[in-house]
Nucleic acid binder design. Structure first.
Length: 526
RNA sequence: GGGCCGCUAGCUCAGCUGGUAGAGCAACAGACUCUUAAUCUGUGGGUCAAAGGUUCGAUCCCUUUGCGGCUCACCA
């Protein structure tokens, strides 16, 4: 194991090494991630979580003790009502509230933020991600950060100078490094007026023009703005590694100012890594979050099994942008994964370097690194599996009965895969790709056409199960010839007779896949 | 305006700590009287955006330029 680790060139291993090198040998390494649950947490946000998860796994495999924390910034301000949320007008009334005090109009949880959090927390274990969740609203409101807020107030000028370095408009003299939610309205439309040098903070509610003095230890209204909050928490939790999106990791971005602000709190910045955004391809056209139709982890898991979802992220350098596909690329993704798996199990020969790389990608793609499969999945092309599924109208057990040599563990994996395949066929596959065998309604065939179909039925009856695919295709041509039909016309006829379309899967193999019984059941009715 | 990323075969990209380039698809040739991005065999194809520099040696490192994209400078 360690031998493999040492020579691994996978980015997760390289990052783990970097953390150890830069932070030194420690008894505990803290890796952090987090976002604001201000709306449905989409698949782009997942990139950060999975990036940390992979680095955490790499560190643990090097024998390190690791704490993986995930911060929900649920004391953030509700700035905009996402279009995919019900009861828009009601939510409008809560703008400028902390999201933890906004009601959940979807009826899933006690408040808006919690509903979005819960959706993520429920699904992450499915892809092998198990962080320790930290809830910032609860912490702030319980006075957990009171001393840190006071510390920021004490270093007001120093912090302002750091933030001003990159600002076009310098922060005014009257600026304070805290934000206050009004105790009258819950909104952040307030202005801090003064601080008594200890825990007393006086602010004005700008809407009501009312003034109040609060104690930051006991009144749950104060929070630090993002660029101060982030470095403060680095110190609080002793964060050694935390990646960031490219909006944070750019000159003048929040990582830049935070790595200076963190010194005010007596700490240092964690090792970081920039990840690029994730695009979506083939998801019905409506994909932008502004339209409210976000793609989240649930959507992706409907079409890809957990290990393939991981595979997408594992196999791509975080700094590279990539797209998650819901169109025909899905076929290729499955094939790519299977290919990696075949290399892992030595079913495909390749050079050492490539094999080592693919091996590591396969390992990291597995949901549980202690339960890596001991045998490859059942070898059937994804396309073929899709055809089987359609022949049996989505009945997975019937499909499995056609694959008698599959082992139990392979069947388990096939079931997950078929469920995804079926969802894909129903929701995303192109029209041309889909078919279903005729049941009640028959093709309105002419007398000549019926004769041809009868002849084909006889061949099917006699030879479909005994002749090879290639040999059987001879009978198809012969039928066309015997009935004086052009091949193209005859193929069209057979597809119409079986599936009501002009085209379909390659005929000889399609008939074989359907099986003698099913084909005859339909053809004999003409 | 600052910063970051990309520019490699017709297309999408891989190539990672410097040793004169790979995959899939497309193309072409041949199998198959055959369809949905169908199957098999084989072939061709690249001044690694451009120009300098470092080096025995550069797709890779440095500088400059061009083109494309993103991001920060308001909030988080």
């Amino acid at each position: 194991m360690s031998e493999i680790q040492n020579q691994s060139t996978h980015w997760a291993d390289i990052t783990a090494d970097k953390i150890i090198r830069e932070k030194g040998e420690k008894s505990l390494y803290t890796c952090a991630s987090g976002i604001t649950p201000s709306g449905t947490v989409h698949i782009g946000n997942f990139r950060e979580i999975i990036t940390v998860e992979l680095v955490v796994r790499a560190l643990r495999e090097k024998g390190k003790n690791v704490r993986f924390i995930y911060s929900w910034d649920d004391y953030d301000v509700f700035r905009k009502v996402p279009k995919n949320m019900p009861e828009q007008e009601k939510l409008e009334g809560y703008l400028r509230f902390p999201i933890t005090l906004v009601p959940d109009t979807t009826g899933r949880a006690e408040n808006y933020a919690r509903a979005n959090e819960k959706a993520v927390e429920d699904i992450l274990p499915a892809v092998g991600v198990h962080p320790e969740y930290l809830y910032q609203a609860a912490r702030y409101r319980a006075g957990y950060y009171a001393e840190d807020i006071r510390h920021a107030l004490e270093h007001r000028d120093e912090i302002r100078a750091i933030l001003n370095e990159y600002r076009t408009e310098p922060l005014p003299e009257s600026w304070w490094p805290v934000a206050v939610f009004s105790s009258f309205t819950n909104k952040d439309t307030t202005t801090v007026l003064s601080w008594d040098g200890e825990y007393g903070l006086t602010y004005r509610d700008d809407e009501l023009d009312k003034t109040e003095t609060i104690d930051i230890r006991t009144t749950p209204n104060t929070k630090l703005p993002w660029r101060i909050d982030w470095p403060m928490r680095w110190v609080k939790e002793g964060v050694d590694f935390e990646p960031g999106g490219k909006d944070h990791l750019t000159e003048g971005g929040s990582y830049d100012t935070s790595k200076n602000v963190v010194k005010v709190f007596g700490g240092e910045a964690p090792v970081t890594m920039r990840y690029d955004f994730v695009q979506i391809k083939g998801h019905g056209g409506k994909i932008s979050s502004s339209s409210g139709d976000v793609v989240d982890l649930y959507d992706v898991l409907e079409v890809y099994p957990p290990e393939i979802v991981r595979y997408l992220f594992v196999g791509t350098r975080p700094s590279a942008e990539f797209a998650i596909s819901f169109d025909l690329d899905v076929l290729k993704i499955y094939e790519d994964y299977d290919n990696t798996e075949r290399i892992y199990f030595g079913l495909i020969q390749t050079n050492d370097k490539k094999r080592e790389k693919e091996r590591r990608i396969y390992e990291l793609s597995q949901v549980d690194d202690r339960k890596i499969p001991s045998e490859p999945g059942y070898q059937i092309p994804f396309r073929h599996l899709c055809n089987y599924l359609q022949i049996y109208s989505g009945d997975m057990e019937k499909v499995l009965s056609r694959l008698p040599d599959a082992t139990e563990s392979q069947k388990e994996r096939l079931r997950v895969r078929m469920k995804c395949a079926w969802t894909w066929l129903e929701k995303y596959a192109p029209e041309d790709f889909c078919f279903s065998l005729r049941s009640d309604e028959l093709y309105d065939a002419t007398v000549e056409e019926r004769k041809a179909l009868h002849e084909l039925a006889d061949f099917v009856d006699q030879y479909l199960e005994t002749k090879s695919e290639k040999e059987f295709s001879e009978y198809i041509y012969q039928t066309a010839k015997d009935n004086g039909m052009e091949n193209a016309d005859f193929f069209r006829l057979v597809y119409q007779a079986l599936i009501g379309k002009d085209k379909g899967p390659k005929l000889a193999s399609f008939l074989a896949a359907c099986g003698r019984e099913k084909v005859l059941e339909i053809l004999r009715r003409y």
